[in-house]
Design a protein around this nucleic acid. Structure first.
Lengths: 335, 335
DNA sequence: CTGAAAGCGCTTACAG
DNA sequence: CTGAAAGCGCTTACAG
């Protein structure tokens, strides 16, 4: 069997207490015994049992992350950042694919509670009061990524959606576009839906361009819905020279439909996306897009959890900077 | 504080042993006491501590998965399948981003060992003898996904790479193509590199088409390398009407370069990819590709682990079926 | 500088 | 059908 702390204590002729102290770099042993014990540990190939340690220390050095979809670039890149920062700080991460399903989420919350994770990260999930209660009960730090709550005071980290959207549309206007269609996510989405629509409207108004409802369509952030929206847009027969899509996937869907309809990008219609996942540069043509620093947001999220773990206080929320990454999907009509 | 098993035992006036039995659905209590205890549990909002349970039962109900890259569609989709099957069987999954780095991988293996995961899954990682030794030492079931080992008898689950590649090229030949370029992954890659090149060569030979080295290029499976390969291919000045790329990302990279060079797809050059991640259908034009059942492979991998956990015996390896998914990136030149 | 002992929250023989 | 007790592998006062 695998050696335990007892085995090394016996072999080294010391008590398990001093082995423990040495392992945990606490004070209370001479340099000599330390060296001797370390030798025995190496010799025996001893590794501490994190489960036993967790039982007494009440710390598991693991974080739970709940996300709506693992095979989606947006969450993947945030997850990448989380995993990286976690590993650097010697934490593990357990992933939970909620599928945006309430029961599933609550179920995961139960499991994570039983497994005693030290902290929780929600990626782009709206925080229902049911979730909030459950987490409150767990009594561990948690943060929201690309989401926030008006009702509860929960630390979050996100981009200013309205502002980002405003800038994207302004960018298009500055490139000489006036007839700009919008492909938005869910209208009911208080976080990634409404604010981005507002940013769009505001930008138009600030430039004295009329907001036309026929040019606004609503999808669900996914590829298929982007296709549907674009199809509807084409069918309205309203002319437009550019489309701003509030997710990368919808932008790609819209571009596919454009391509099917022999619409040249950007000659006939310009496109601006949102997110800046790896696939923005992989599309044809490469997508100009509003960039969210996804990986950094993931890093930051674990930093926040760690701070909360250390200080016991709520971390401060962070609004991350966004930017426009110019590629080749927008045609300038200014000259 | 959170109630423990002791609290419910006290409140219910029974011993912790019977509470434990009820919780674990073992025999040894009357229906009456069961109901009574369940009532107390609900009332107290008691949840068992999985860490304590794990310490005695030697089972953590968690699996470790090591993958070279989390923000990559291939691994993401396999991971999705793993997470799903794990959750259905009440297992959690800890993700470890190895970055194809030996030290990192070994480090993760150490951590996973200390955290006592019940099983291990490697996604498209070559099994070095160093890894093998380390895992052997852990003494837990593990399986390889989209990989295998000639040296060690480790259960794996993958597609027949050579055959899949053979079929893709044959498909192109049947569509009337003779000058077919190849964009392969690493030449040194015994698993996803060489076999696919062999399949390509074999298909050509079987159809009495000369294999020309100038038409074979090597990348690293990534987008950028796909671009580079395509650039080189164009520069050789050798004519070709189709390219087969052994990864989706490289195919997308190659298509981007084609687009930049005003090469029409598929009118001028046809493309066939490999993997069939979600992005195959999202490209312009939608990519015809060799499909690997990624999500199913993930499902299957956990099934194998569970079987090994139950029977204590090595699971049988699985060769999963591949297929050609026809989309719009190949032009037929037969008529 | 070091050790004996209690305890973390469970499960599992063992005894009745 | 039920309980007392040992034990899983650690950490942490406490005492010396």
């Amino acid at each position: 069997m695998k050696p335990t702390i007892k085995d090394v204590a016996n072999a080294a002729n010391v008590s398990i207490a001093t082995v423990s102290r040495i392992l945990n770099k606490q004070a209370g042993y001479s340099q000599t015994t330390k060296e001797h014990v370390m030798g025995v540990i190496a010799e025996l190939g001893y590794h501490p049992n994190a489960i036993a340690r967790g039982l007494v220390s009440k710390k598991t050095k693991t974080l739970g992350v709940l996300l709506p979809n693992v095979s989606n670039m947006f969450s993947s890149e945030v997850l990448d950042g989380i995993e990286q920062a976690a590993h650097e700080n010697e934490y593990s991460v357990i992933i939970c694919n909620t599928d945006r399903n309430g029961r599933r989420t609550l179920d995961y919350l139960k499991v994570l509670g039983e497994k005693k994770v030290d902290g929780l990260i929600f990626i782009s999930e709206a925080l229902t009061s049911e979730y909030y209660q459950a987490i409150q009960h767990l009594n561990i730090p948690f943060v929201l990524v690309s989401s926030m709550s008006y009702k509860y005071q929960v630390p979050y980290i996100k981009v200013d959606d309205k502002h980002a959207s405003y800038q994207a549309v302004t960018y298009l206007i500055e490139k000489g576009h006036k007839d700009i269609a919008l492909i938005s996510g869910d209208i009911d989405d208080v976080l990634a839906g409404i604010p981005r629509v507002e940013g769009y409207c505001q930008a138009l108004r600030d430039h004295r361009i009329e907001v036309r409802q026929e040019l606004i369509t609503y999808g669900d952030f996914g590829f298929e819905s982007g296709k549907e929206c674009m199809t509807r847009l084409i069918q309205t027969d309203q002319p437009f020279s550019a489309v701003f899509s509030t997710s990368e996937e919808m932008a790609l869907g819209a571009m596919s439909v454009a391509h099917q309809n022999k619409i040249n990008i950007p000659e006939d219609i310009s496109f601006v996306g949102y997110d800046n996942t790896r696939y923005a540069e992989m599309s044809i043509p490469p997508l100009t897009t509003v960039a969210q620093p996804l990986k950094q947001m993931g890093n930051k999220a674990v930093e926040m959890i760690l701070t909360m773990l250390e200080t016991g206080k709520k971390a401060q929320s962070n609004i991350m900077p966004h930017s426009i990454v110019e590629r080749e999907s927008v045609k300038s009509r200014t000259k």
